[in-house]
């Protein structure tokens, strides 16, 4: 079909894919952070939340597949375009090269992206599969008993007294290892940098931007990325500082 051909074959099409999947991924990481921040509240909250998500079953799998497709498309586009662009540059580099317009974040999108990819793989091994730190993996921890009900949109989804996996202790246990915590901190830093350019760039890619509000957009994106970074930093940071137990 023409649509697929244009989107998959042309540089502009792949950019649109990257931006579209980027929006989904931003939605995910922001949502994920909001969910994760519940770790600072009563253990009921995050454990109930995690249990609720696990209990979604097929819906969870649909979401996972969708996210996976987005990640794959995003990374595929990024990789193919990067390879083509490197080829377009040719073999002879400039002797002197001055940056004149590109923002700092934009220059390292490929680097930050791949580190994030490495992070995601580790992260899955860590908290989803339990391969990285089996000792503190949720399946291997004592179950947690809900003290109260957990609601989503006013509907009770996990009842008091239910035995659930202790996600909170898994996270805290995981981050007690300073190497792991530091790796997380660096990774979310780079992800924030990736988003610093990415979240602005996608407006340009979709053609929803012009000079009159370019600066405003940049300011908003910068604030959001800073907030995102701090929020993410808070979790491993507090564990390391012993504030989260």
């Amino acid at each position: 079909m023409d649509l697929a051909r244009h989107l998959l074959r042309s540089t502009l099409g792949r950019k649109l894919i990257m931006a579209g999947t980027g929006v989904v991924l931003i939605g995910f990481v922001v949502g994920h952070l909001v969910g994760n921040l519940q770790v600072f509240e009563d253990p009921d909250r995050i454990n109930g939340y995690a249990h609720f998500l696990q209990s979604l079953g097929p819906v969870l799998w649909l979401v996972r597949i969708f996210l996976l497709v987005c990640v794959v498309l995003h990374i595929w586009s990024a990789t193919v375009l990067s390879l083509e662009s490197m080829k377009a540059r040719g073999s002879e580099p400039y002797r002197v090269k001055k940056w004149i317009g590109a923002t700092f974040a934009s220059r390292y999108m490929r680097g930050t992206g791949y580190v994030v990819l490495a992070f995601i793989l580790y992260h899955l091994a860590h908290f989803t599969l339990g391969a990285a730190q089996p000792a503190t993996f949720k399946e291997n921890l004592p179950h947690y008993v809900m003290k109260g009900d957990y609601h989503v949109l006013g509907v009770t989804v996990v009842r008091a007294g239910a035995e659930v996996l202790d996600c909170r202790q898994m996270v805290i246990g995981g981050f007690k290892n300073p190497v792991v915590a530091l790796f997380y901190m660096v990774a979310v830093g780079l992800l924030s940098l990736h988003l610093l350019h990415g979240a602005e760039s996608l407006f340009q890619t979709f053609g929803w931007k012009n000079h009159s509000w370019e600066r405003g957009l940049r300011a908003v994106v910068t604030l959001l990325c800073a907030a995102y970074f701090l929020g993410n930093l808070a979790i491993p940071g507090s564990v390391l500082l012993g504030m989260l137990r």
């Binding site: 540089t11 502009l12 792949r14 950019k15 375009l81 083509e84 662009s85 490197m86 080829k87 377009a88 540059r89 940056w99 004149i100 317009g101 590109a102 923002t103 934009s106 220059r107 999108m109 350019h197 602005e200 760039s201 340009q204 890619t205």
Partner: peptide, 14 residues
Amino acid sequence: GFGSCTNQYECSAA
């Protein structure tokens, strides 16, 4: 064989 745009705005600056 031109590369793709990563919205870096070096072009408009040059």
